[in-house]
Amino acid sequence: MKIIKQIGILFTVCWLSLVIEHFLPFSFSASIIGMILLFGCLLAGVLKIEHIREKSDFLLSNMAFFFIPAGVSIINYFDLLKSNLWQIAVICAVSTFVTFGVTAFSIRLTKRLMERGR
């Protein structure tokens, strides 16, 4: 029964995010809305981490499985990717270095804030 309850909670959050996405006057991803909604419920104390721990751990440990359809569908766009290979490579390289920089800045800021709190 515990597993069904956890799956029900996760599916309810997903469903609510789809409903919210439908009624928004602008385009916004339902998966992002779902993450924000789940985070808000955890912060507010509506949900406790124990309510979803087992199923979320299962989904995280099998995350690579969920990328298979996206990876396979890339084959449909091989010609488009081939014609824009350099642009895609530059974008990937630049975004990787920007991500490294933002992550390093975030870690430094977090460490400073944690030291001030002590």
Rank of each mutant, 00 (worst) to 15 (best):
K2G: 08
K2W: 02
I4L: 05
I7M: 10
I7W: 10
I9Q: 05
L10A: 05
F11I: 04
T12V: 00
T12S: 09
V13C: 04
V13Q: 02
C14I: 09
L16V: 06
S17G: 00
L18C: 13
I20R: 04
I20L: 03
F26W: 05
S29M: 07
S29A: 03
A30D: 15
A30H: 13
A30C: 08
I32G: 04
G34K: 01
M35I: 15
M35V: 15
I36S: 00
F39A: 15
F39K: 13
F39C: 13
L43W: 11
G45R: 05
K48D: 11
K48A: 12
I49M: 13
I52E: 01
R53L: 10
D57A: 08
L59M: 07
S61C: 09
F65W: 13
F67E: 08
F67D: 11
G71L: 14
V72D: 05
V72G: 01
S73I: 14
I74A: 11
I75M: 06
N76R: 15
Y77N: 11
F78S: 07
D79H: 11
D79G: 00
D79Q: 14
L81G: 07
N84I: 10
W86G: 07
Q87H: 05
I88A: 04
A89V: 15
V94R: 00
S95Y: 03
F97W: 04
F97P: 00
F97D: 02
F100H: 08
V102E: 12
T103K: 15
R108Y: 03
L109T: 02
T110R: 10
T110I: 08
K111S: 04
L113H: 10
E115K: 11
E115H: 07
R116Y: 13
R118L: 12
